[in-house]
Simulated scan of single mutants.
Amino acid sequence: MPGGRLTQQERQRIAAGLADRLSYAEIARRLGRPTSTVSREVGRNGGPGAYRPQQAHQATAERARRHTPAPPRATGAPGGTAVEGVIELAVRSGLPRTTARVHVDLLLSEDGRRTAAELTRRLEVSPASVSVAVNYLVHHGYVRRERDSQRRHDIYVVDDDAWYHAIVFSARQTLESARAAMEAAEALGPGSPVGQRLAKSGTFLERVVLDMMDSADRWRTLLA
């Protein structure tokens, strides 16, 4: 599998795949790249409808020369509306807004890595807010924490397995709730109306969650 930064030819193939309405996963498969690499590349360079391979390649080369992260997009910039839309969806799903912004900013970084100081500067929020956000993301499996021993600070990383770990974490929590409901049904009496309702709900959740975990294991290779 290729490593390192995307080449200009690969970016042209991404543009061709988008024009053919291929999924990110299919484009990534044809390139021999992780799906997350393609999704980050498109997301940080205008989105599916505005992606231009030449401009994307030039922008990446310029960022590499400066050795600094890309500046945060304003809502009115190309792709900015799409990014804001992703943040809004994350907020609606239950993430606090700052946590959602931190997560999306990590996803859109060139290598999926940021320090707390970079997140604070880019998002214009307090270090305490970033700390709360990354602790939540690490705890729920969306992000992992690495230690830079030379500069003595933490680096937060979104790797290709992050979605797998997040799904498994959420599924295990739901599975605990399902089995608690089934235990409560037994305690209350499986023949009682409340016991029957809890038993049905617990069994339904258990079956769905176990299927979800099996599916996550089966499709995990797409993230490799």
Rank of each mutant, 00 (worst) to 15 (best):
L222A: 13
A16Y: 06
L210H: 00
A61W: 08
E118N: 03
I155S: 02
G3M: 10
A64I: 11
R13Y: 03
V158F: 00
A178R: 03
H139M: 06
T60E: 09
L18D: 07
A117Y: 02
W163Y: 03
E176M: 14
S126F: 04
L89Q: 14
A199K: 08
R207H: 12
H67W: 11
Y142A: 02
T120G: 06
G43D: 08
A64G: 04
R218Q: 14
R179H: 09
P96S: 09
A128P: 00
A90K: 13
H140K: 07
P127H: 02
D20Q: 15
A117F: 04
E146S: 05
A199S: 14
T115S: 15
A59F: 02
L89I: 10
R40N: 11
R5H: 02
A100I: 02
L89S: 15
G4S: 02
R147E: 05
A187N: 10
S177D: 14
I167C: 14
L119C: 05
R40W: 06
E84S: 14
L222Q: 15
G195M: 09
P72I: 15
L198S: 13
Q55E: 12
R179F: 01
R172C: 12
A15T: 08
G17I: 10
N135C: 00
V134M: 01
A74F: 13
W219H: 10
A59S: 11
R218D: 12
A162C: 09
A181W: 09
A128D: 05
G49M: 08
E41W: 08
T81L: 14
D154T: 04
T81N: 03
D154Q: 03
V209E: 12
F204I: 09
Y51H: 10
L106N: 01
E183P: 01
R152N: 14
E146C: 06
D160K: 06
A199D: 12
W163G: 02
L107S: 07
A59H: 08
R5P: 01
Q196Y: 05
H67D: 15
I167N: 08
A90E: 15
S129Y: 00
G76Y: 08
A61Y: 01
M1I: 04
S109H: 10
D211I: 11
D160M: 05
R44I: 00
L6D: 02
R145S: 05
S23Q: 04
S39L: 07
V83F: 04
E146G: 04
E176T: 11
E183D: 15
A74L: 12
T37E: 13
Q55I: 14
E110S: 11
P2I: 05
L188N: 06
M213R: 10
T81A: 12
A184T: 11
E84T: 09
W219A: 12
R63H: 08
P34R: 09
D159P: 00
V208C: 08
A15Y: 07
A56Q: 03
E186V: 09
L119P: 01
L188D: 06
L31T: 00
G3C: 05
